[in-house]
Write a protein that binds this DNA or RNA. Structure first.
Lengths: 130, 130
DNA sequence: ATGGGTGCAAATCCTTTGCATCTGC
DNA sequence: GCAGATGCAAAGGATTTGCACCCAT
């Protein structure tokens, strides 16, 4: 999956995979610069798109900071803080029944390929601040 | 819920509620201009935030076109086209068990307030193009 | 020499902000 | 007259693009 990657792409993939959070393109840029100081921001964006296209990473939606990337490619769910926007990985033990998903998808003419549950609420840090 | 709104806010809320799709701020702006030609884009953004804050509408995540708004405030789910990004309302008849949601939220220290299921796949229009 | 990948800078796009003006009370 | 709302234009921030350059083939 990754032996075709060049040095920049390799470094970027390593960073996304090694990140504990879901880094934005800018965060990836800053981190990759420590290893490859001459890399340009445009290359980071280009490579992130390629990696997402290739399925090595996933592009999560944008929030106020920008687009976030996730190297955790197996199906999983997310918890999102309604206050600060923090995005945390979760895994629902009991998923949604796939018949229900299929039915809902069919109802709007969509060919189902995956799904994700998002739960919203206050994260631990924001509970304290309230 | 809306008798405290002024004319601009009223017009904007009407437009979001009357929209069949999930309009972006720019779309709302263009539509509200037909009714109130002097309105500024900044006011549209300000009012949309206020309405979202007040719970009259919901702010959906941003996609390539920008931030989308939804006047459909009851809990529901979405189908998202992986090709063109189209965002469609769906409702899963069989939801996720609330115990599972609670458990997952607790596991990451989040106080659960709502949830949403997202299904991904090709929308009808994009199936044809493939 | 050739083509893809790269860096830089400029351009774009959406969104926010500053500020002077206008409005309703 | 004042406080809040508004329009306009400028600023801000993320992402994309144009283009010349460089490297490996």
């Amino acid at each position: 999956m990754d032996d075709t990657l060049n040095a920049n792409a390799r470094a970027i993939l390593d960073i996304v995979q090694g990140a504990k959070n879901h880094p934005t393109a800018l965060e990836v840029y800053e981190r990759v610069r420590r290893v490859r100081p001459h890399i340009g921001l445009a290359t980071v964006y280009r490579v992130l798109h390629q990696l997402a296209e290739a399925g090595c990473i996933k592009e999560l939606g944008r929030d106020s900071e920008g687009c976030r990337y996730d190297a955790h490619t197996e199906r999983h769910d997310h918890a999102i803080c309604t206050e600060c926007g923090a995005l945390l990985d979760i895994l629902l033990e009991v998923g949604v029944s796939s018949e229900a998903l299929q039915a809902a998808a069919q109802a709007v003419g969509v060919v189902l390929s995956s799904h994700e549950v998002r739960i919203y609420g206050l994260c631990a840090a924001c509970q304290v601040k309230e």
